[in-house]
Simulated scan of single mutants.
Amino acid sequence: MPAPDEQSDVESFERPEASFARTLERLKREGCSVLVCGTVAAEIRAKMTRQLFGSTEMYRRRILGHTGTTALDPDAYLPAEPPSDRHAVVVSRAGPVRASDTSGVVDVARAVSEYHPSGGSGGSLDELDALGTALAGAVDEVADRDHLSPGVLRVGVTSLEPYLDADGVEEVVRFVRTVAAPVHEDGGMLHVHVPLSHDDARVRALLPYFDARIDLRVHEPLPPECRWYLPAIDEQTTWMRL
Rank of each mutant, 00 (worst) to 15 (best):
M1H: 13
M1D: 12
P2W: 10
A3C: 09
P4G: 02
E6M: 14
Q7H: 15
Q7C: 14
S8H: 01
D9G: 15
V10E: 11
S12N: 07
R15P: 03
R15E: 12
A18T: 13
S19E: 14
S19G: 12
A21E: 12
R22L: 14
T23G: 10
L24I: 06
E25P: 04
E25V: 13
E25T: 10
K28T: 10
K28S: 13
G31R: 00
S33F: 09
V34F: 01
V34A: 07
L35C: 06
L35H: 00
V36G: 06
T39D: 12
T39S: 12
V40D: 03
I44L: 07
K47M: 12
M48R: 15
Q51L: 10
G54E: 01
S55G: 08
Y59Q: 15
Y59S: 14
Y59H: 15
R60E: 04
R61C: 13
L64R: 00
G65Q: 00
G65F: 04
T69A: 13
T70W: 07
A71P: 09
P74E: 04
P74K: 00
A76K: 06
L78A: 07
P83G: 04
S84T: 13
H87I: 12
V91A: 01
P96N: 00
D101V: 15
T102D: 15
G104M: 00
V105R: 14
A109I: 14
A109G: 15
H116N: 05
P117A: 00
G120R: 00
G120V: 07
S121I: 10
S124R: 09
S124E: 09
D126K: 13
D129E: 15
L131I: 08
G132Y: 01
L135K: 02
G137A: 13
D140I: 09
A143D: 01
D144L: 13
D146V: 06
L148T: 05
P150G: 08
V152N: 09
V155T: 06
L160C: 00
L164E: 04
V169C: 07
E171I: 02
V173C: 02
V176E: 03
A180H: 08
A180R: 11
V183K: 03
V183Q: 03
H184E: 15
E185W: 08
G187D: 00
G188K: 03
L190E: 00
H193W: 09
H193Y: 07
V194T: 01
L196R: 06
H198L: 11
D200Q: 02
A201T: 12
V203L: 05
R204M: 14
A205N: 06
Y209Q: 10
F210V: 02
D211N: 07
D211F: 03
I214Y: 07
R217Q: 06
H219P: 08
L222H: 11
P223N: 03
P223W: 02
R227H: 06
P231N: 05
A232F: 02
I233Y: 04
E235Q: 12
T237I: 10
R241F: 10
R241S: 09
